[in-house]
Amino acid sequence: MRISRDRVISLLVIAPSILAVAVFVYGLIFWTGYISTVKWDTLRPDYTPVGLANYQSIFANNRFLMDIRNTVVFTIFFIAASLAIGLLLANLIDRRIRGEGIFRSIIVFPMAVSFIVTGVVWRWILSPGQDAAHPQGVNQLFGLDPTSNRWLTDAHVVYIQPDSPVYGVLHDIGLGFITSPNIGVPIALLSIVLAAVWQMSGFVMILYLAGLRAIPEELKEAARVDGATEWRIFRHVVFPLLTPITLSAMIILGHISLKIYDLTVAMSGSGPGFATDTPALFMWQTTFRDGEFGRGAAVAIVMLVIVAFVVVPYLVWNRRQEVEA
């Protein structure tokens, strides 16, 4: 009897949390999904069904298409740079250096700072200055010409131009659509990546460092005895063992980049030609500035679906690992 009474208490203890998550996560997602199918386009809620019109409208909106481009580009560069720098630094730190604690703290402290603070500071550092005679920030520091180094204000998008040799080939094989500026890399976005990597690479470093230190020294020693070079040891022994960490880091960074909002708001807003616009900012402005709640909800649902594509398999995988363990 005693066991079952405790069982009841345990369920009562966790019930409020389950209920809260059920309502505030799943219930509200469902409600947002519903709003995305109604007219509601002024401050006054209007639940006239419109089917998928809101989705049609946002996918016909060039700004939203650029936002998706930006998200993809940002995610790729942000994850690649953070992983590379994090892994490099973890390996450096792991080499029994003097002042390890200090270096580690310097690398990790940006994590303690809000994206807003990061954005405010980097926005200033990355403002280019007006012309060759008046460089500012990084341009002044490194003696660069503001007219060609535009950082946050660079409106260029690098994409496959008609005069490029592959342009014709792509069109011939039916892949002409990827020669659009909407499939390209906006230069200004890379400045945001710089700030985001500054903030998040320490996190990756910590993950890898923990991973490196969990690898038994004997494993590496055995390889050394076999005459393997340090690089080969890293490549064939260490790195494979770090795979789960790499995956975890990719998911964490990936979902951050898909949701990124604060940092771009503080640094550049939409940026020149929407070069630094994000779905999150588009959603917020559509909804709370323009009063187009139905369309805003549609953007939110698209964001959710993209994130779910990344996260759900990971959660399932994580769960399996646990069951196996």
Partner: peptide, 10 residues
């Protein structure tokens, strides 16, 4: 993991 935009309106 959810983007909070997906629950912001309700």
């Amino acid at each position: 993991f959810i983007p909070y935009q997906a629950i912001l309106i309700p």
